[in-house]
Design a binder for these strands. Structure first.
Lengths: 333, 333
DNA sequence: ACGGTCTAGGAAAGCGCTTACCTCAAGCGT
DNA sequence: ACGCTTGAGGTAAGCGCTTTCCTAGACCGT
């Protein structure tokens, strides 16, 4: 492992000069030396030790991202936005998958803190449970206390910079669309009940129900896990247990796709299905899926922009609207 | 930012003792001190500086991953496998998206090198162009020369540990299936021509054609970019320019899904379509997609296992087989 | 030719941590 | 009671780099 000292010795200069040349410091250096040092770098295949650099200039450059799971399309989309902005700013992005386990999340916060990241962006971990949320918040504050910046995507215990998708409004849009079409017996395939995302989308749905004078009783709300298979199972149960239902609102597209799959096995039943998030697949399933679009990439971009921006005096909160995308999976009764 | 020295001072011990207590060193320490130090850690919200640690114990622990794009389902799947193994081994994973730009890839190799990662895993960058491949190989060797480990997924210029999906055989399987069904006029929607993945899959297809005494002339091979929209465009062109074609082999599922979408706009044309990779969506499109399955997660797991294993005397190469999954998008003529 | 101002390059002090080595005192056997 | 082992804890030397001085020669005006 070649070190800066090796390079300097090889070129017959001091480490100070070598460092200045390699980092393109503003201090002028004779061309002869520059050439010699650069030659030494090439010959020794010198690569500076990033850890030593970080230590010496106490200058944070990397940023951390904590999401549920990058390979989940929802978070993949968000992550894409985060990356775009961070990379454009010349920063290394460290991505951590929390799998929605608070302990793992806690661990990653400390890990990123230890790695001296400039900022942490957290998406998809709005826990309704206060104790859990408080524990997380405590660690986040510790990070902030050392000058780190934090931005969250989605409602979160942590009060600070945030980008908030309007899940409640999205839920309302979904509900209103179904009720508008004349469906009165609507079932909801929800996500895990401990997530704020689930809670808010449900709230919007309930508001729409009230507005249209319809009911959305507890038994019509089935909690699944945001996965395709979860949606399929829930729909299968629904089909036999609550045959009066004519429309399904799935709280994300993966579950909606599962619902469509379950319906395909029961060709005699024709239910309307609406999804959430408007993932790319929504266009390609049959029938194509009506969905509530959230501009996920933009969500990521804005969050990272907040995180990299100057530390604010007051927490900045940005709201992002949801939009209804009507396709063929919903129709009037 | 609290440092170890602060903690030590606060607890009235030396930094050596504090360090030993915090890292749970094997050296015995009086319980009274341990308690005091731990209390100081909690009170000062001390988080060790990972960079300083890395520097002090010259012990590499993180691992790097370079893929085309994590949010592409193909790589998401591979990444999932990589992560599982690395995390189980208690390592931080740094993921880099190369977007198949050799320069970016080069940059990331050096960056990971600079960050002293223990190993680098590279997926999806088998470049056919020798000059590009050689440049990459040079940087990889520099990394290996410092004790770093490398594993590649897919055919690659770099000779070393590798996990090789049998793309040629997969191509053969796809071709044989179509020819078996009686299709003689087959078109191929290929990926970028500079990728070994494209090359190998095509080679298998050609072998099947020869075996069945069919032709697969150049004009039947359309190069797209592995995206859904690319597949849709290519199919649209095909439909008008080569109406005699009765079956399409897309070299990945995204493009196959695009092909299905294009076909949907031409209900009078009924072409068979086969995809590649067997992504989760394959089950959920209509008609469900016949595809050549590659166990992507396993690919990732095995590559990371190689990368973390003991440095071998000889390069280890593992082969992974492809399998045909027949669904409804292919039928006999 | 001389004092003074630049300027290119070097010496060395850390950045925060680990750890090999050292010290000092308590505890042991005889 | 003495020398010796043992064990708890401290001292300080780096890990590889950046950067702040500082030095010494070059160059200027007079």
């Amino acid at each position: 492992m070649a070190t800066l000292a090796d390079v300097a010795r090889h070129a017959g200069v001091s480490t100070a000069t070598a460092s200045r040349i390699i980092n393109g410091s503003s201090k002028p250096v004779a061309d002869a030396l520059r050439t010699r040092v650069l030659a030494a770098v090439a010959e020794l295949k010198y690569v500076p030790n990033a850890h030593a650099q970080m230590l010496a200039r106490s200058h944070r450059s990397a940023v951390g991202v904590i999401v549920h799971d990058v390979s989940d399309p929802y978070f993949a989309e968000i992550t894409r936005g985060l990356q775009r902005v961070a990379t454009a700013d010349g920063r290394l992005v460290i991505i951590c998958n929390s799998f929605r386990e608070p302990d793992r999340e806690l661990e990653y916060i400390d890990l990123l803190h230890a790695h001296q990241v400039a900022a942490i962006v957290i998406a998809g971990s709005g826990y309704l449970d206060d104790a859990t949320a408080a524990r997380l918040d405590d660690r986040l504050r510790a990070f902030e206390a050392t000058g780190g910046r934090i931005a969250v995507i989605g409602r979160h215990e942590h009060t600070g910079d945030a980008v908030l998708p309007d899940n409640e409004q999205g839920g309302y849009l979904a509900g209103a669309h179904l009720f508008d079409l004349g469906h009165t017996e609507v079932a909801v395939i929800a996500g895990p009940s401990y997530l704020t995302t689930t809670f808010d989308r449900l709230k919007g749905l309930q508001r729409a129900a009230r507005k249209y004078g319809c009911k959305l009783p507890k038994k019509r709300i089935i909690h699944a896990d945001f996965t395709r298979d979860g949606g399929e199972d829930a729909t299968a149960r629904l089909l036999t247990e609550q045959p009066e239902v004519t429309a399904i609102a799935a709280l994300n597209d993966s579950m909606a796709v599962g619902a469509l799959a379950a319906l395909r096995t029961a060709p005699d039943r024709r239910l309307a299905v609406i999804g959430f998030d408007d993932m790319p697949i929504a266009r390609d399933v049959t029938p194509s899926l009506t969905s509530v679009r959230l501009p996920l990439t933009e969500l990521g971009e804005r969050a990272m922009t907040l995180a990299l921006g100057a530390a604010g005096d007051a927490p900045r909160v940005e709201h992002v609207e949801a939009a209804l995308i009507i396709r063929q999976s919903t129709w009037s009764l």
